[in-house]
Design a protein around this nucleic acid. Structure first.
Lengths: 300, 300
DNA sequence: ATCATTTTTGTACAGGCAGTATAATGAATC
DNA sequence: GATTCATTATACTGCCTGTACAAAAATGAT
């Protein structure tokens, strides 16, 4: 994405935050960004497409931050989860994402509609996966229901919390409150055995072409980031940096990745003996392994 | 509201359900309703105002239905509450109210925004009041939080339920599931003693000029309806009908009601000795008493 | 039945927006 | 220096909202 295009995205986001999405005309965006109409339509085919670019951009940033908080931590630690939620909610508040999302949530444009639905499901799935980390695999059958209810509770609680205390209340209390509730509810549901939705439906909702691709890319970049953090500025370690970048590019590129080259690079990465490094490297090996086995399955 | 005006409301609702709110232009509504542009703007000053008329109309119908289900029943009976929810959700589904509401939930028009917020809060308050009926006054301090979380959970559950089973799943299961969850949660929260919002904030959210008026009118019509149902077609009992209608009109009229006339009418209503009648009559006396004492407070 | 008042209609108009088309301008590349 | 490409300015179509107003129709009172 060009700098110029990104500038338009940022300027538009700014206008949407100030005036709302519907109330902002393309003309406004053009004037505010200092570009011509032709350029705008060169970048985006419509206001909706621009909106999607905004969401994508913000979504990526959230995801990076979330992964950063998890790096080198115990994924079953509830406090980490709470920290992630706090970051996410604070981010949403700062960027008026709640408002923006709600304003366009139901749209006539099927493309936008589908796009937003996907974002929402990705969000639910993230919660679900974290719940599996936290509450354990035994409770997995109930955790999709819990993830759905949790997001409903949390967003409603935050909504009315803001209605009550104009912005100056602390969200943290609300998050902790809601997390406490879901903790107890998980136990209760396991005892009752009730289930509404099977977690396997997530795979149906997120077609493989999307999930494996995008989720993989995100996981990948998260782990690579974590690995890079382990590196010092040693000459020795610069080669690891190169290898990491190579692997990430090779997988993300649309062209068929050269499997054995990647594996060889992975093997070399194993030479680094740092503690955190090894943990993260194992994750990297795991998802790359999954990636290739899935790929070969698809081809056969 | 004229028949003609109501016709436009219905026709517009039909179009909104088919094509969505945003995608329907005023011209569409005019053509579909067979009226002229002048007439439209005679009835409504904008599309938003028409939308509010639709919501008001549907909201009234929901409220009537809800009260009808409660008439002569034990308000603490959970099964009645579930029936009310089933009716409401089924009504929403039939009239695509979920969609419509979501589509316009965030609006640039401050009037519409406020209107919708009020509807939402009225809904929360209804749930809250029913929770007080069901779970008892002891748990009152926690029940606003519970009402908020319950609506969040329910709507999210229903949303994803529809996503999973295209319309053909039964909502009833989802409702029961969610009600079960909140039942347990109420107990859990009471033990923990956590509270986010004090129920008294409801009065702040719904300014008196609205609450006392509208809530009163609704309660009133509900109780009067219940009382009318107790009546048979006896000549004897026709006078009660007259008295009931008189009281209702006198209170709802904007002009200052004649207090002593109303009280006398109430006294006469006490002559009927039926069992259900007496229960409902006591409620009637109670809210009318509240109404007058509040009124005198305001005037002093 | 007649007259006055209100409602409705048809039509025209101003102003705004989305999206397209195109010729002119500018800058970087080869 | 020529070519290519993104960018600009501008004009244009078509659709929409909201206003205005005079003619026609319906309503209601006498």
């Amino acid at each position: 994405m060009t700098d110029r295009k990104q500038l338009v995205v940022n300027k538009a986001h700014q206008l949407f935050m100030e005036k709302g999405f519907q109330a902002t005309s393309i003309q406004d965006i053009i004037d505010f960004s200092g570009i011509s109409k032709g350029t705008f339509y060169n970048y985006f085919s419509s206001k909706n497409e621009l909106l999607m670019a905004i969401f994508t951009s913000l979504h990526q940033r959230i995801d990076e931050e979330r992964n950063r908080l998890l790096v080198g931590q115990d994924p079953s630690d509830l406090e980490i989860f709470i920290k992630q939620l706090e970051m996410h909610m604070e981010f949403n508040r700062r960027n008026k994402l709640f408002t923006l999302f709600e304003e366009v949530f139901i749209s006539n444009d099927p493309a936008l509609k589908q796009f937003l639905e996907r974002i929402q499901i990705l969000y639910i799935r993230w919660i679900y996966n974290r719940f599996v980390d936290i509450f354990g695999k035994i409770k997995q059958p109930f955790l999709l229901d819990c993830a759905i209810m949790f997001t409903g509770m949390l967003h409603h609680n935050i909504h009315f919390h803001f209605l009550a205390n104009q912005m100056d209340g602390n969200i943290k209390k609300v998050i902790r409150y809601t997390v406490h509730r879901i903790e107890k509810m998980v136990d209760e549901i396991e005892i009752s055995g009730d289930q509404l939705l099977k977690p396997s439906i997530l795979e149906k909702w997120l077609p493989d072409c999307y999930t494996s691709r995008e989720a993989l890319e995100k996981k990948l970049s998260g782990i690579v980031l974590a690995l890079k953090k382990c590196l010092t500025d040693n000459k020795e370690q610069l080669k690891y940096l190169e290898l990491l970048d190579f692997i990430q590019d090779e997988i993300i590129q649309a062209k068929p990745p050269r499997k054995y080259l990647v594996q060889s690079a992975l093997f070399t990465l194993g030479n680094n003996q740092e503690e955190n490094w090894k943990v993260e490297l194992r994750k990297l090996e795991e998802i790359i392994g999954e990636f290739f086995s899935k790929k070969e399955n698809d081809e056969s």
